[in-house]
Design a protein around this nucleic acid. Structure first.
Lengths: 122, 122
DNA sequence: CTTGCCTTTGACGTATGGGTCAAGGGTTAG
DNA sequence: CTAACCCTTGACCCATACGTCAAAGGCAAG
């Protein structure tokens, strides 16, 4: 499977896959004799996981920091998320939750101050 | 008053003042014969208002869109914010409030989905 | 063999609110 | 007059998660 098909199968673009590899979210893909990347179904599944984690608000750096754990998964089984694998152990999700809470508080306070400026017109 | 003093008086930097002027938040400052910008106390007050609006979460574009109303203020009186001047009439603040609410909702939903992934470990 | 799509790398663009030089000229105190 | 600081414009920098473009080569079908 070449990059275009793998990207489509994972619901994204070749550019994103190269980006994930460059940033260490994906292990370097094996290459054909002519230098083209080769992907298998496990890579597609891995990309799906990465994209889900990113869509949940984790940063590229967050995912990269637990990328080794993702790579360690052998066989065809994929991690059940809640119980082991990447999310637990590093605390990266906890830190993200904290950051999200802080951002929500900040925006809420901003909203209130802004609303106070314009009165209770709503 | 030249730009450095005006910026200091308004609690910011010369760069910011040039930036506001370039982006249309401030009217173009009159120049000396040698091309240096000249500011008065009213300009300083205007910059303070701009900075407060920005700190309240309005974007540069938001403030620019009501810049004319700000410029219209004559005499030494400054607007009481809540009752007239920029904030009311254009709806820009209302739109910002809506955008803030949407962002808060988005982050809150994200927070919940992320928390659900990791379980109720907290 | 050629056409046309796919892949490679590298470099630049996106939006925000300015920060940070850099080169050249103004201004003021001594 | 000169040092020391101030001002001018222009251009590049930050961080995010890629998109887009470009030049150059690979691959399968006709």
């Amino acid at each position: 499977m070449r990059i275009g098909d793998a990207a489509a199968a994972a619901g994204t673009t070749p550019r994103a896959l190269r980006f994930y590899e460059q940033r260490g979210l994906l292990p370097p893909a094996p290459r054909t004799m002519t230098g083209q990347r080769e992907y298998g179904p496990r890579d597609v599944a891995l990309v799906r996981i990465i994209r889900e984690l990113l869509s949940l608000g984790l940063t590229v750096e967050d995912v990269r920091s637990c990328a080794e754990r993702l790579h360690l998964l052998e066989g065809e089984a994929l991690p059940p998320y809640g119980s082991n694998g990447c999310t637990q152990g590093t605390g990266v999700v906890q830190r993200r939750l904290t950051a999200l809470d802080e951002e929500i508080s900040r925006l809420t306070a901003l909203r209130e101050r802004l609303a106070a400026r314009v009165g209770t017109v709503s």
